[in-house]
C-alpha cells in the first residue's frame, strides 16, 4: 500500500512541487482567515485579541441568519438577485463572444484595436462616477433626456421613481461596464485556436459562418463552461455599486433594485453586528457552493472532460 503511494508521489513529484507556491498562498490568505466564518454563529464581543474574543463570544446558533429570511422582502431580494444574475450570466457569455468574434473579423485591424481599447474605458470608472453620469442623463429636473423629451413636446419622466425602466437600465449598465473586460478572455481564446483548423475548413469550402459555428464556438467551450460554473457560484451576490449608487438608492425603485447585498448593507447600518454580516456572506457563498456542486455534477454527466472537478 505504502509503497504504491510513494511511487505515485515520485511520479508526480514535479507537478506537485509546481502547486506548492500557490498552495502556501491559499493556506495563509484563504484558509487561515476562514476561522472568521465562526463569527456567523457568534454574538461577537471584543474581549482582548481577535481569537480570544472569537472563542469567548456567545454561541447564538443560527440567530444571525434569521434577518435574511424573516422580512417580508426576503423573497423579493432573493428573486431580484437571482434573476439579474441569470441575465448577466447569459448576456455575459453571449454578447462578449459575439463581439470578440466580430472584432476578430473586422477587416481593418487598426480599427479593431481602437474599438477594443474604447470598450475598456468603462471598466476604469467607479460606480460612483458612473452614477453622476447616469444622473446627468436622467435627472428629472435638469437631465438631458428630459430636455430632449420636452423639446419634442413630450412629458418629462421622473426616471428615478419609474420602476419599469430600471431592469433595463441596470442590465445595460452592468453589461456595459464589464464588456471590455469580458471580451478579453474570448479574444485570447480565439487567438489560441490553431489556424490549421480554419485552413482545413477552407479547403473543404466551409463558409465563414460554418467556421464560426463548427470551429470557433466548440473550441471556446472549455472557457465558457468554466466561466459559467464560476458565475453560478456567485448567483446570490450582486454588485453593490450598481444597485446602490447608480440607482441613487431611490426608495421608489426598491421593488426592482433591492438585492441581497443592498438589503444587508441597509439592515446592518444601525446594528453594526459583525456576526450578522458574516452570516449574510456565508449564506451567499453556501448557496453558491451547493449550486457549483450541482452544476459540476450535471456537466460531468454530459462531458466528463469539461467538469471543473
Amino acid at each position: 500500500m505504502f509503497k504504491k503511494q510513494i511511487r505515485t508521489f515520485k511520479r508526480n513529484q514535479t507537478l506537485f512541487m509546481l502547486t506548492i507556491p500557490a498552495t502556501i498562498w491559499y493556506v495563509i490568505f484563504a484558509y487561515l482567515p476562514m476561522i472568521g466564518v465562526l463569527l456567523a454563529f457568534k454574538r461577537y464581543r471584543v474581549n482582548g485579541g481577535f481569537f480570544t474574543s472569537l472563542f469567548t463570544s456567545e454561541w447564538v446558533g443560527f440567530d444571525n441568519f434569521k434577518f435574511l429570511f424573516s422580512s417580508s422582502d426576503a423573497w423579493l431580494i432573493t428573486r431580484n438577485t437571482v434573476l439579474y444574475n441569470i441575465v448577466f450570466i447569459v448576456l455575459g457569455v453571449v454578447i462578449p463572444i459575439l463581439l470578440a468574434i466580430g472584432i476578430n473579423e473586422l477587416l481593418n485591424k487598426r480599427l479593431a484595436k481602437f474599438y477594443q481599447s474604447m470598450l475598456f474605458l468603462p471598466y476604469f470608472i467607479s460606480w460612483v462616477v458612473v452614477s453622476y453620469f447616469v444622473y446627468a442623463f436622467l435627472s428629472p429636473e435638469s437631465g438631458w433626456i428630459n430636455g430632449i423629451i420636452e423639446q419634442m413636446g413630450g412629458n418629462p419622466v421622473s426616471w428615478y421613481s419609474e420602476v419599469k425602466y430600471w431592469p433595463f437600465i441596470i442590465i445595460f449598465m452592468g453589461v456595459w461596464k464589464t464588456l471590455g473586460y469580458n471580451i478579453v478572455v474570448y479574444l485570447a481564446a480565439i487567438c489560441g485556436i490553431d489556424q490549421t483548423y480554419y485552413e482545413a475548413a477552407m479547403l473543404d469550402g466551409a463558409t465563414k459562418w460554418q467556421q464560426i459555428r463548427y470551429i470557433t464556438i466548440p473550441l471556446l467551450k472549455p472557457v465558457i463552461i468554466i466561466l459559467f460554473i464560476l458565475a453560478v457560484g456567485r448567483i446570490f451576490s450582486a454588485d453593490f455599486g450598481l444597485f446602490y449608487q447608480v440607482t441613487r438608492d431611490s426608495g421608489a425603485l426598491y421593488s426592482v433594485t433591492n438585492v441581497i447585498d443592498t438589503y444587508v448593507y441597509r439592515g446592518l447600518m444601525t446594528l453594526g453586528e459583525v456576526g450578522m454580516s458574516s452570516a449574510a456572506a456565508l449564506y451567499q457563498s453556501g448557496v453558491g457552493f451547493i449550486l457549483i456542486i450541482i452544476t459540476n455534477a450535471i456537466i460531468k454527466k454530459i462531458d466528463r472532460d469539461q467538469a471543473l472537478f
Binding site: D63, F67, S250, Y254, R266, L268, M269, L271, E273, M276
Partner: peptide
C-alpha cells in the same frame, strides 16, 4: 439595546429608506 430584537430591527432601515424619503418630500 436592540440585541434581543436584532432580526426585526434589521428590516427597519430597508422599509424606511423605501418609503421615508418619498413621503417626506411629498413625492407620493
Amino acid at each position: 439595546d436592540p440585541t434581543p430584537v436584532q432580526t426585526e430591527v434589521a428590516a427597519f432601515r430597508n422599509v424606511l429608506d423605501e418609503f421615508g424619503a418619498p413621503l417626506n418630500t411629498g413625492t407620493v
